[in-house]
Amino acid sequence: MLGVVDVFSPTAPPRGARGLHRFANPGRFLRLAGRVLPWASGIGLLLAAIGLAWGLFVAPADWQQGDAVRIMYVHVPAAWLASAGYMALASASAVALVWRHPLADLAAVEIAPVGAGFTAICLITGSLWGKPMWGAFWVWDARLTSVLVLFFLYLGHIALTRAFDSPERGYRAGAILALVGVVNLPIIKFSVDWWNTLHQPASITLTGAPTMYLGMLWPLLFTALGASFIFVALVLARLSAAVMERRIRALLAARAEGT
């Protein structure tokens, strides 16, 4: 079990995890994050601003949905990042459980609120699109319900990691929840194929050509890429703060032991 002070002591990493453990050094991580953060924030803001302006003012309205289709430019990137963020949370949890990487548990703790935020954006903007299109803010459709479950998984992780007196026990319980919750990701992805849903099937897939007009696809790709960079920047900033806060606790503990 990793204590607060142990994190800063040089321990031999398990075999097979040495590459990952290069970034276990807080100083090295903070230097790297400090270099990446301004670029990720700048590129993310620029791409998102271009994509949003393009989607809002230049892209054509849909012949059926009218201008309500413009909600897609914020809804779809948030939906993709809700799932991708959970995959990142589960990956960090797996690394924390298997290799005991000292930054992986902190990464999981810091990814969860950002992922929950993007899932909330997805749910709220989806509701705002659903009202004029379906006549209801909410229906218990398989896609909507599975994304709501994803939101609760994020909230559960946030609550669980903070529910124990010992942070390490909280991290471990949260990691197990995150790994169990991965089962929800294919349900979200394939819900529109497995069940008869109101939610439309995917317009963009990795294997086939997009079924979307290019004038709508480009701004969507800009907002999606921009939102991805912003997500990474938010997690890096939170993780850098968490690393420094951990160091502060370690210094205070060492000082208390010395007195």
Partner: peptide, 27 residues
Amino acid sequence: THLAYILPAYAVALLIPALFAGDAWRR
């Protein structure tokens, strides 16, 4: 059309990341 739905959607999509960014910067 549908401005009453589009504007709140964009506002939420901007506000939530902005709140996270402000919190991260303060921390």
